[in-house]
Design a protein around this nucleic acid. Structure first.
Length: 164
DNA sequence: CGGGTTTGACCGGCGC
DNA sequence: GCGCCGGTCAAACCCG
């Protein structure tokens, strides 16, 4: 009941990359170019999914002041220092306007779990790259404040080229 | 027939 | 030490 959300800040101290792009306007979709820490893997050019049944109402609105200043979209270079950890887990969160959560970014994903977060009335979907050897994981969740917004979080780097 | 999807249960980490 | 939360895997099922 009233305990709706007494938690101003989630315990999620996870750092995300704040895509601060002043009104990032995507003519069609997201463009993964010029990303920090990007590697050949990020070379994956996202293909325009014009076959989207819901128009490409996808706009990356990050860092948008709006009423909520708390930008939840942030990225933390989780680079494990020390030569031992060569696994760099890049975490990138995207806020996209979409009716459907099935946003095709040019890669094939296999859903491997669904969970409900307490801070959100909506469930969180977990996707994994269908390609063998691809440690990339994707997390899709709907905004609890703006159901029309979809937060997609990518984790890891593709070891192969995109399907396109 | 294969692959993908679904749900539940299980596990680990962290906090208190 | 226990509880909570998040995350992952597995089995079964469904669809093409």
């Amino acid at each position: 009941m009233s305990d709706t959300n007494s938690r101003p800040s989630d315990s999620n101290d996870r750092h995300y990359y704040a895509i601060e792009q002043p009104n990032f306007e995507l003519s069609e979709f997201l463009m993964f170019e010029g990303w920090p820490e990007e590697d050949d893997a990020y070379n994956a050019s996202v293909g325009p999914v014009d076959q989207n049944p819901v128009n490409q109402a996808n706009e990356v609105v990050l860092g948008e002041s709006g009423s909520r200043s708390g930008s939840h979209i942030e990225e933390g270079s989780d680079s494990r220092d020390d030569g031992s950890g060569r696994e760099r887990r890049e975490r990138v969160a995207f806020k996209t306007i979409s009716e459907v959560e099935i946003l095709d970014d040019g890669f094939k994903w296999r859903k491997y779990g669904k969970k409900m977060v307490k801070n959100s009335p909506n469930p969180r979907n977990y996707y994994r790259c269908s390609v063998d050897g691809c440690p990339v994981k994707k997390r899709v969740e709907r905004d609890k404040d703006d159901p029309k917004y979809v937060i997609t979080t990518y984790e890891g780097v593709h070891n192969h080229q995109s399907s396109f």
